[in-house]
Design a protein around this nucleic acid. Sequence first.
DNA 1: AGCCCTAATTAGAACTATTCTAAATTGGGA
DNA 2: TCCCAATTTAGAATAGTTCTAATTAGGGCT
Lengths: 144, 144
Amino acid sequence: MVSSDQGGEHTGGEIPAVVGGLRMTKQRRAVYQILLDDRDHPTATDVFRRVEKTMPSTSLATVYNCLEALVEHGLVNQVNFDREPSRFCSNLKEHVHFHDESTGVIHDISFKKGAKLEDLLSLPKGTTVKDLELTLRGVLPKKK
Amino acid sequence: MVSSDQGGEHTGGEIPAVVGGLRMTKQRRAVYQILLDDRDHPTATDVFRRVEKTMPSTSLATVYNCLEALVEHGLVNQVNFDREPSRFCSNLKEHVHFHDESTGVIHDISFKKGAKLEDLLSLPKGTTVKDLELTLRGVLPKKK
DNA sequence: AGCCCTAATTAGAACTATTCTAAATTGGGA
DNA sequence: TCCCAATTTAGAATAGTTCTAATTAGGGCT
């Protein structure tokens, strides 16, 4: 079966020729694969350094192009922490980010099921929320 | 009474000589006053253009310096929307930002009283949240 | 398979927001 | 008033990202 993926994200195995409407070039596939494999929220430069290892001819501009294409097609999320370089992640489940100050690690935190934003915030009724970005900063308990 | 403000923010009238531990220079006072008066979340450049009107000798670097000092002393909040220039606001009540796509206006939204973040998110117990930033994007209902 | 044509890639320049540097100025305290 | 540290200033420098223009690649025809 030569799959060609009818829209939506890619979930496992080899990345097909088209994912979520985006044609997978060599470079896009490499970038996407890195984000699928490495869940450490790399920056564009991080991704570039990793792509370089297997495809040394790749340029940073291409990495930016690929990331932009992946984001536009909803395969990848772009995450911004204040003025720091953008980070990218392929976790498409709705989640927020917890930046652990003691380790520097960024953790994905999911919403409790059934939890609604309107329970927390005084939004005028009739408000449409298209998108939200929530970032926490603090420290996680030491694991023992 | 020559007030000298024992820590904490400034709330109304003339800005005293020291606010929240920060000595008010001419430039800092001008910047702070703009943020107290104009609640439209201006960028550093916006603030610069407004300061210029009454103090044409002011430099952009100074505006950045003043904003940094105000932020460090907790008199002003720095707000970041993805890759856009930082915005500044003097609303110190804990609140989140709603970016109205149809008007471009940024609204402050406050938390419902009693609402707790832990009700919404699956945080490992023992987690310390030092800071959070929540931005919504969408459209508010047209006022009629 | 070969040709065509658009899309993608590339290197480097350009851009934007911000920070840094070093010199000039200010202003409070002795 | 004088001194000294803090502040301001202009401009250079930086970092991340986007743009430009030329090259390359690859899918869809014949």
